[in-house]
Write a protein that binds this DNA or RNA. Structure first.
Lengths: 231, 231
DNA sequence: TAGAATATTTTGACTATTCAAAGTAATGAA
DNA sequence: TTCATTACTTTGAATAGTCAAAATATTCTA
């Protein structure tokens, strides 16, 4: 069984690979995500690669093997189910759930996880709208676009929030920009570098392009609604 | 903060001290409880003593200091609340809850614990009838006697089961000897070395004295109902 | 294309925890 | 009181994970 530490490396690796479309993840990046020095990451990654969970290319980066992806997805499943459980059943604050789940994900047993899954009715997304991998290790990864890409006048609904930091989530919550919320784009002038979005029944919110990009929405006029399967 | 490992040593130490009425716990005993070799226990205990959580007397044993007891009781509180939570809310099997809680007790946060406590309505005992320490670090330790001490003909109710092993708990459950169950002692001849107890609405169960001693009951004709406070 | 700046790897060292085996003390039986 | 047994402690070594700093590549800039 993979240690807590290794589970963390794998999870971060998987998440990062999503961002960078499967490219090799550079050591510095991984180290920062896991919260260790680059030297430590190099050492660990070599060990992980030796156990067949990743491919390590010196000075280029790391990439998960199929086996590594499987393991990462099991960790992610635990993480996301726990987040939802903490929020829905225990009433833990949205913005705190991530941190709490971070610890629990490494010790929860399959038995307990199955019970949580059942209690929640086999949910498909966590409180941030992130898809929950299946117990078989597959995730639905719908192609979404962000608030930043919409034109003034469009109506859409928030599906997912990419930034998991408590500060950002607290801001999102108070603004009314939560998953499932309906939103109208009031202004979006690329030259301005900021947009104005109005959630249903709430006052409009001004967002920098960087902040707007953290809200993924559907429907998405430009991208249609294709889905991709990911092992 | 005490590590997982140290939390375990402290918890076992506290439990063992209850058995042996505050006497020094010998190394061999502690080692067996924690599941390490005696040498390891000696090393760890010296470290624990250095940090002021226990008093170590070479070749005699260890005993918790007040600070050590406090910490142990916080761990025990987490453990017992979790057990109850697993059984009541998640529907985990009685006999499995102990093992699951063993892991979770070291990672659950105060925030989550408070939510669990609330959800369960600030319970005072866990599924085995063991008292749950308060968040201030105190336990009610009522003086109870065991099934083995009752005379034939007495009626009583099971309060607590001392053996936490899944095998024993499974046996207790199928026999109907669970906390809160009413029981009548049908036979108890000290010479025979075994007793016969009949739980309400169930067939009588034959128990060796050793097994009978694992069921604590109330009311208890001989001991009255004094309570002791324990810090 | 020569530095300079940046990223990565290597090295040596440290902490926490463990075990096996050897040494030491205490206990108990004859 | 003298062994033998048993319990405990010490020692030396191992593993997992970490860091700081030195060494090495790579990439960018002028």
């Amino acid at each position: 069984m993979a240690s807590r530490t290794i589970e963390n490396y794998l999870k971060q690796l998987w998440l990062q690979q999503q961002e960078s479309r499967g490219k090799y993840v550079p050591m510095g990046k991984l180290a920062a995500l896991v919260g260790v020095t680059a030297g430590t990451a190099t050492t660990m990654v070599k060990a992980i690669a030796d156990s067949g969970l990743a491919k390590y290319a010196p000075r280029a980066g790391v990439r998960l093997t199929r086996a590594g992806e499987q393991l990462a997805l099991h960790v992610l499943r635990r993480h996301r189910l726990l987040e939802l459980f903490l929020v829905e059943i225990l009433g833990i604050d949205w913005s705190d759930a991530h941190g709490e789940a971070e610890e629990l994900e490494h010790v929860i047993s399959e038995t307990v996880l199955a019970r949580i899954d059942l209690l929640l009715g086999h949910p498909s997304v966590d409180p941030h709208g992130d898809p929950i991998p299946s117990s078989a290790g597959t995730v639905e990864a719908p192609v979404l676009c962000s608030l930043a890409e919409l034109q003034a006048g469009s109506r859409t609904a928030i599906v997912r929030i990419v930034d998991q930091s408590s500060e950002f989530l607290r801001f999102a919550q108070t603004s009314g920009l939560v998953p499932k919320a309906a939103v109208v784009i009031e202004h979006n002038n690329p030259q301005a570098g900021a947009i104005s979005a109005r959630p249903d029944g709430k006052p409009p919110v001004i967002l920098s392009m960087a902040a707007a990009a953290k809200f993924l929405v559907r429907p998405c006029p430009t991208a249609g609604k294709q889905r991709r399967k990911r092992s």
